[in-house]
Computed example of a mutant assay.
Amino acid sequence: MKYGNLMLEKKEYVYLKRIINISGYAEDFETKKAIQQLSVELKSANIVDDKEMPIDVIRFNSKVSVTSDSGWDRTIQIVIPKDKDLKQNKVSILTPMGTALFGYSKGDTVVWDFPKGKQNLKITNVIQEGSLNSIQI
């Protein structure tokens, strides 16, 4: 991992903790499992001010290109739950893919337990499309 631990901006961290707390009641097993894994990773995350956030770290509204070890490539945007839209490749932070990538950076390889088994995801690009400060919650 490029920065040692997950890297999160303070306001995004507070928002993420809030939605994790209320999402603990999710009925979908895979969503619950992904949220629990993210919750564990948040305990050792580096929390920084917005001005200290590296440009290549995945955060809310980041467009992320990933390559899997099973051979697929995909570009998605990580969004807050109400903005998810799979037709536009907008993936909620509360999905296994969203939780797997959030806080990692370009060049990192993430090993995550997806519904169909563990996969290695190589983060090949990160483009910032606006932070939590620019979206309405």
Rank of each mutant, 00 (worst) to 15 (best):
I19N: 07
K106S: 06
L38W: 07
T75E: 15
G130W: 11
K33S: 14
V126E: 00
M97F: 06
K90Y: 02
F102D: 03
K118T: 12
Y104Q: 01
K11M: 11
N133G: 04
N89K: 15
V57K: 05
N125H: 09
S65M: 10
Y13E: 09
S134E: 14
Q37M: 09
I135G: 01
R74S: 02
V79E: 02
M7L: 12
T31W: 01
R74H: 13
N61P: 04
I93R: 00
E9H: 05
N125L: 09
F102H: 06
Y13G: 03
V111E: 11
I78E: 02
S39P: 06
V111I: 14
D56Y: 06
D69P: 03
G4T: 14
N61Q: 14
D83S: 13
P81M: 12
W72G: 04
Q36F: 10
K87M: 15
D108A: 01
R59Q: 13
Q128Y: 05
N133I: 03
I78D: 06
D73F: 10
E52S: 13
A45Q: 05
L121S: 00
D49V: 02
D113Y: 01
K51E: 14
M1H: 09
G4H: 11
I19A: 07
N125K: 13
Q77H: 08
V66H: 02
I58Q: 07
S134I: 03
S65F: 04
A26H: 03
K87A: 14
S70P: 00
K82Y: 08
L132G: 00
K106G: 11
E9F: 02
K51Q: 11
K43L: 12
L6D: 04
Q88V: 02
Q136G: 04
T99Q: 10
P115E: 04
K84H: 09
I35D: 01
D85E: 15
D56A: 08
L6M: 10
K11H: 10
T99Y: 02
Q119K: 13
P81D: 10
T99E: 12
N46P: 02
V57F: 02
N5I: 03
I20Q: 08
I22A: 12
I135C: 05
I55L: 12
K32W: 00
K122V: 09
K33M: 10
S105V: 07
I55Y: 11
G24P: 05
I78R: 03
I123K: 00
S39Y: 07
G24F: 04
L94W: 00
N89E: 15
Q119F: 09
I137D: 02
K84A: 15
D83L: 13
L94V: 07
T124S: 13
L121W: 02
I137A: 03
V79G: 08
F60K: 09
S70D: 08
Q136S: 09
I20T: 07
K63G: 09
N61H: 09
V64Q: 02
K32V: 13
G117L: 06
Q136Y: 12
K63H: 03
E41H: 09
V48M: 10
Q36E: 15
L42Q: 08
I19W: 08
N5K: 13
D108I: 01
Q119G: 04
D85A: 14
S65D: 14
R18W: 08
E41R: 14
M53I: 15
P96D: 02
K11L: 12
I47N: 11
V57A: 05
D113H: 07
S92L: 13
